[in-house]
């Protein structure tokens, strides 16, 4: 996903010299193609994220289309006030790229788990929050946000995610994309996910389908603004809506769905699948930690079956 985004940025940057990439001294082996191709549009701001974000705001106020880059919580929580006051409040075209949403850097420890970032960024007015589910969504989102005014948070996974979406004709900020239809089965279930947990969610849907439990599946690359249309439609058509996120269930994607769901007509009952409001003290890879907290494919299947009583 991250390589796709950088590749996309290079193509955009070649056509538009106002596109600029600033890193907080991270991106070894990832950003090299960018700085080699577009050396005059690349800045290493050093290990200083508050300044990086303030500088990005200053550049954007002078007409640049800026992307800041770092990993985990460094480009967001470390400089949250700069994002709020300097970028969002001034409608600056600053796009914050986080590599490592969720447990990507699992073994590195709690400092590197980005598991509350969606909630924090979602709380800021005039900040768009995009968590692409696969490389296709990531590419299309990057192309759109580069030329969209205002401040955007682009939360990526790592490298090597599979493409899940068959095709997306037109990427629109705020729109959810249907991954699969529910077959004509007795259980009425919709499953929503945001971010790179899409792959696990799809796997879970495959398993459920094999067991005769079909679900309509959506990927929500945009958490803010959220696709109210899909939510209210599903609220009427399904008995259950499950949300899946590699993030704390407090304040994140599931909460965003709940906010809409509780104010619209419908029958669907919501169940949020995510990290159940704790810091992970266990050591292990992303897939190990996903399994530990129950957000891998099998964990999602168990949760769904437990709720619907199968």
């Amino acid at each position: 996903m991250r390589d796709t985004v950088i590749k996309t940025l290079i193509e955009l940057g070649k056509k538009d010299k106002d596109i600029e990439l600033i890193t907080g001294d991270l991106g070894f082996g990832v950003l090299k193609p960018f700085w080699e191709t577009l050396p005059n549009q690349f800045i290493n701001a050093g290990i200083a994220e508050q300044n990086m974000t303030g500088v990005a705001a200053g550049l954007a106020l002078e007409g640049k289309k800026v992307f800041t880059y770092s990993i985990g919580n460094f480009p967001t929580l470390r400089c949250l006030e700069q994002i709020r006051n300097d970028c969002a409040y001034h409608n600056a075209n600053v796009n914050i790229i986080c590599v490592g949403g969720g447990y990507v850097y699992g073994s590195l420890g709690m400092s590197h788990h980005a598991t509350e970032d969606i909630a924090c960024l979602r709380a800021l007015p005039d900040v768009t929050v995009i968590c692409p589910g696969d490389p296709l969504e990531a590419k299309l989102a990057t192309e759109v946000i580069a030329h969209t005014d205002g401040t955007t948070y682009l939360r990526l996974g790592r490298g090597g995610e599979k493409v899940v979406n068959n095709s997306i004709k037109k990427f629109t900020i705020g729109k959810a994309y249907k991954i699969r239809d529910a077959k004509d089965m007795p259980n009425k279930i919709a499953i929503f996910s945001t971010g790179a947990i899409l792959e696990e969610t799809s796997k879970a849907c495959d398993i459920l389908e094999e067991q005769g439990i079909a679900a309509e599946q959506y990927s929500f690359p945009t958490v803010k603004p959220i696709d109210k249309g899909v939510i209210s439609d599903c609220a009427k058509r399904f008995d259950y809506i499950f949300t899946v996120e590699e993030h704390n269930i407090q304040g994140g994607f599931g909460s965003a769905i709940a906010e809409v769901l509780c104010e619209c007509e419908g029958i669907a009952k919501l169940h949020r699948i995510g990290i159940n409001d704790f810091y992970c003290i266990e050591v292990g890879s992303q897939s190990y930690l996903r399994e530990q907290v129950g957000i891998n494919a099998e964990g999602i299947v168990d949760k769904v079956k437990g709720v619907i009583g199968e």
Partner: peptide, 13 residues
């Protein structure tokens, strides 16, 4: 502590 980074960004631009 917000002004100097932004002023630096503008100077760079």
């Amino acid at each position: 502590g917000h002004g100097l980074p932004v002023a630096a960004g503008r100077a760079l631009a």
